[in-house]
Structure formats: C-alpha cells, structure tokens
Simulated scan of single mutants.
Amino acid sequence: MKHYYRVMLGRKSIHAKECFAGGFIGSGFGDIQRDIARDLTDDFRAFNRHFIPELQQEWPDRSKIALGLWCGFTWTICKGVRTGDIVLSPDGTGSYRVGEVTGDYLYVPGGVLPHRRPVRWLPASIARADMSDALRNSASSIGTVSDVSRYGAELEQLIGGVAAPLLVATDPAVEDATSFALERHLQDFLVDNWAQTDLGRQYDIYAEDGEPVGSQYPTDTGPLDILAVSKDKRTLLVVELKKGRASDAVVGQTLRYMGYVQDELAEADQTVRGVIIALEDDQKIRRALMMTPAIDFYRYQISFKLVKG
C-alpha cells in the first residue's frame, strides 16, 4: 500500500534546492557522520535505544524528547518510508514539490542531509491554496516528517490537477466524520492558543530551539496529538483528541502513547499523565478513566456569535 509523507528538507527548507537538484530527501541526524544501514531494523524502539545514548554524549544539553525526535524523523526517512511512497516537500514559494521514493537508504559523507533516500521528483507541484483545510494543516505541522497518507485520494487528484475534494475521514476507527473534521481544526487551535487554556497554565507544549515540536510527536504507533511538559519539568503530558473515534480506541491509543513516552522519553525523575479531549461528554470514556487515574477527560465548547458592524 502506497503511503504519503510531508518531508521538510532542512529547517525552513534550507536544503530544498540541493535536494530537488540531486534527487533525494535526507536527515542530518544530529551530525552523526557514519553509515547507519546496519542499524535500520524494523524495530523503531531498538533504533532509539541504540542511538539516544550516543546522541546524549554528543549533545548533553538536549533532552531525551529532543533526541527521540531526531531518531524518529531519521528512522522514518531512512527506513519507515518505503520505495514507491510519495513525498511532498515545500519549495519555499507556497507550493510543494512531489516525488516518488525510488530506492533504499544511502549515506553520502560530506553532503547536506547525508542520510538519504533517492527520490524521482515529478514535474507536478501542489499549491497550498489548492489543498483542503485538513490536508493543509497536516502538511504544515511542525517537524521534519508528517504522515499524510489519510489524504492519499486527495493528493492523487491534486497531482493530476483535479480540485481537492471535501474532507472524508478514512481512518476505520472514526465513527463520526463531522467530529473528525472539526477536531482536526481544534488541534491547530489548541497549539496556537495553548497559553490561554487551562492546560496551558500548568504545561507547555514541548519546544526545541523555540519551536513547539510537541505537536504530532512521532512514536512507534503513530504520531500523538500533543506532547507537553509541566512548567517544573517533572511531568510529561500526552494530549489526545477524540477525533470522532470510538471511545475504546482513543483510550487505548492514549495509554499506548503514555507507555511509549514513559519507556522511551521520560527522564528518571519524570512522570507521565494523559488527557483526552472531546466535543461531547462521553460516558464510555468516563467509565474507562475511572480505572485509569493518570488520564483526565476534558470537553471543549465552541462559541460563535455575529456582531453588527
């Protein structure tokens, strides 16, 4: 099955021209200057456990969360993305170049983004303005790699020059497509207005070099919606939006993300908590959370009014 990824080519697309001209995508991987082909197993966690200690030696001021990001992005680019998958990369002009991954990992010593995958860049490019709101938001998410496979049908139409269709929720766990669409926008709103929320009084979205990279943080079971850290740095918070999914599915997913954060990212003195946010009250979630006190439940409200000018 073909997958689709948004891939940044260096911070703020600084290496886009080299990548388009040279036919590749890549990762700098914290300045690790050696071939890592033997370490690219299918086990994402094993990759993290192997490289995080090495990165800690080189970058002692970086947290395990930041180093986990480097590992996650690099593993996805070098191993997780398959030959034949489609990548979108911003060109710096408001459009995305489209390419097909044509081969396995290769290391180019001395080159920019030396941990690479070869790509055949297509003549087609996609303007941000032509994307649906949901795809535009996913393609704009902070981080090096974003899996946008749920928008595969829309992307194929855009590559072929056809206007974007209405949003359709293709995740089999989604029960309510309307809530799914609305809560895709809620995530952007939460990130943009975090400081004004109740959660924002106690937690900050995890940031690296001033950028809030805790949105869509990669894990071995997919990206979690928001990863935050308490202001005293002692608690990591996993925030999941229900997105129209079945109640049992969102509770289970939140617990899996919390387990990943506890095992792979939390420092020895940090605890992990979770939050589930939904548009409506959900008795099934409340019942499940009675037995899981480490997860809180929040409802959100939408206020809309017209003011005569």
Results as ranks from 00 to 15, higher is better:
116 R>G: 00
117 R>Y: 11
120 R>D: 14
120 R>G: 06
121 W>T: 00
124 A>F: 14
128 R>Q: 12
129 A>V: 01
131 M>V: 03
132 S>D: 13
133 D>W: 12
133 D>T: 14
134 A>W: 07
135 L>G: 06
139 A>M: 14
141 S>N: 05
143 G>K: 06
144 T>F: 02
149 S>I: 03
152 G>W: 12
154 E>M: 10
154 E>V: 08
154 E>D: 08
155 L>R: 07
157 Q>Y: 04
157 Q>V: 00
157 Q>E: 02
158 L>Q: 11
160 G>Q: 11
161 G>V: 03
162 V>R: 10
164 A>W: 06
165 P>N: 15
167 L>Q: 05
181 A>C: 10
182 L>I: 06
182 L>Q: 14
184 R>S: 11
185 H>W: 07
185 H>T: 09
188 D>P: 04
188 D>H: 12
194 W>R: 07
194 W>P: 13
195 A>V: 07
196 Q>I: 06
196 Q>Y: 12
197 T>Y: 07
199 L>D: 03
201 R>G: 01
201 R>T: 11
206 Y>K: 10
210 G>T: 02
210 G>Q: 06
210 G>Y: 01
211 E>P: 00
212 P>H: 09
214 G>A: 05
216 Q>W: 09
218 P>L: 03
220 D>A: 00
227 L>A: 02
228 A>E: 04
230 S>A: 14
234 R>Y: 04
235 T>R: 07
235 T>Q: 08
241 L>K: 04
241 L>T: 00
246 A>E: 15
250 V>F: 10
252 G>N: 04
253 Q>D: 05
255 L>T: 04
256 R>K: 13
258 M>T: 00
259 G>R: 04
